[in-house]
């Protein structure tokens, strides 16, 4: 709410203060223009289809990253040998910007779904895995030790202590990771796509339709907020024992 108010205030007040160019509706269209074109896009231009295309790519790319990254991250954080083997590679690739891979990925996978998902995977998988490895490696040593004194084997410590102790941190980092997924998806769609929110933004910019660009960006923002709410609900639902969860 405050955010929306701030946006309105900005579009109204900024021109009065003489912020360059912004008083020109061409550069920064008024909220009602944006709202109108957002409605138009959904009602007449099949924007819902693009939103779905993007969401689907995010979903797939993120799920694949998480499906491999979570077990691998936990293994890296829990077992020395796994860490020694994987961490250096992953740490190195993490510093290579995912967007730099796009041309290569286009050659490998073409310009359709596979390439988009691959970009998301490269952008999300590597840092997510390392963050999750940190979560598992950071489980308090006392918790592990007490399990040993209660008679747990190494394997039991892994399944009954390290894993359950890791889940809340894993979910936290998934919430962060899905944000990166959006960033990389839009980049991928800006480069080459025939559908998706990024594609809509690119086409709109060809026709200088700033209202449509802003409408598309706001849509991403709203989807982000929804995902965040979903993750927060999941945390509340799955981890009622967490100190962070009240009620």
């Amino acid at each position: 709410m405050i955010g929306i108010w701030a946006l309105v205030a900005y579009t109204r007040v900024a021109p009065a203060l003489g912020v360059p160019n912004l008083h020109n509706p061409f550069f920064l269209p008024s909220p009602d223009t944006v709202a109108k074109s957002l409605y138009n896009m959904f009602a007449h231009e099949g924007f819902a289809h693009d939103v779905w295309a993007s969401t689907r790519r995010i979903g797939l790319g993120f799920l694949i990253s998480a499906a491999i990254g979570i077990p691998l991250g936990i293994a890296i954080g829990s077992f020395r040998i796994v860490q020694a083997f994987f961490e250096p590679i992953i740490a190195a690739v993490r510093y290579m910007p995912a967007s730099a891979f796009i041309p290569l990925l286009i050659i490998w996978f073409g310009i359709y779904e596979k390439e988009k998902i691959a970009v998301i995977f490269i952008g999300v998988f590597f840092p997510l895995t390392l963050l999750i490895a940190d979560v598992s490696a950071g489980i308090p040593k006392e918790l592990v030790n007490i399990a040993y004194t209660l008679g747990a084997s190494r394997w039991q410590v892994f399944w009954r202590v390290l894993l359950p102790a890791s889940w809340p941190g894993v979910l936290d980092n998934m919430r962060i990771g899905i944000g990166w997924a959006w960033t990389y998806l839009i980049v991928a769609e800006l480069v080459a796509a025939s559908s998706g929110i990024g594609h809509v933004i690119l086409s709109a910019s060809r026709f200088l339709q700033t209202d449509k660009i802003i409408a598309a960006i706001i849509t991403i923002g709203i989807l982000g907020l929804l995902t965040d709410a979903l993750f927060r609900w999941l945390y509340w639902f799955l981890f009622p024992y967490s100190e962070r969860v009240s009620r």
């Binding site: 007490i146 202590v161 102790a165 967490s242």
Partner: peptide
């Protein structure tokens, strides 16, 4: 131990 070492999820 001195620190609280109960398993929080149990």
């Amino acid at each position: 131990f001195q620190s609280y070492t109960l398993f929080p999820w149990l």
